[in-house]
């Protein structure tokens, strides 16, 4: 019933053969595929990390450029405002100058006109005075006399 013979050796050979067969056909492919999958998963995680890092960087850059742009626009607006202010000042100043000039010219004209009319009036009055005087003094009065009379009169008037 109990026998131990050469079959023990066969069993050991069988076991060794089975072990190597299993190793080649079962464990190697299965463990291989699992290792490969783990590697792939690890790679995906790494890729995701990389992508996130890149996205963060891009975001930072974008934010920085946005801030730059804001600053730039503020600067441009400020510049435009400054320029406008200068232009405004210039225009207002030139307008003022113009006005002043015109006013001056008008005043000059008025003064001139006034002087002119004054002279005309003087001439008129002179004529009138001469006429009146000649009427009062009579026909005898010569031109020199009347001229003298007129001057006296004027002097008298001016003194008054």
């Amino acid at each position: 019933m109990l026998r131990i013979d050469i079959n023990l050796v066969f069993t050991i050979i069988n076991l060794l053969v089975l072990y190597f067969l299993m190793k080649k056909f079962l464990f190697k492919p299965v463990n291989n595929i699992i290792a490969k999958r783990e590697e792939a998963i690890k790679k995906q995680f790494d890729d995701a990390d990389e992508a996130k890092k890149q996205a963060d960087e891009t975001k930072k850059q974008y934010e920085a450029s946005l801030a730059d742009a804001k600053e730039e626009s503020a600067k441009i607006v400020q510049e435009a405002k400054d320029k406008a202010r200068v232009e405004y000042d210039r225009i207002v100043k030139s307008a003022d100058e113009e006005v002043t000039k015109r006013l001056q010219k008008a005043e000059e004209t008025i003064a001139e006109e006034k002087a002119k009319s004054l002279r005309a009036m003087e001439a008129e009055i002179e004529g009138l005075v001469v006429a009146a005087a000649s009427k009062v003094v009579g026909e005898k009065v010569s031109v020199e006399n009347s001229q003298k009379l007129y001057d006296d009169f004027l002097a008298e008037m001016g003194e008054k």
Partner: peptide, 11 residues
């Protein structure tokens, strides 16, 4: 069979 279990045990 004792041969088989003995073989396993020897291994």
């Amino acid at each position: 069979d004792l041969n088989v279990t003995a073989g396993l045990a020897v291994m």
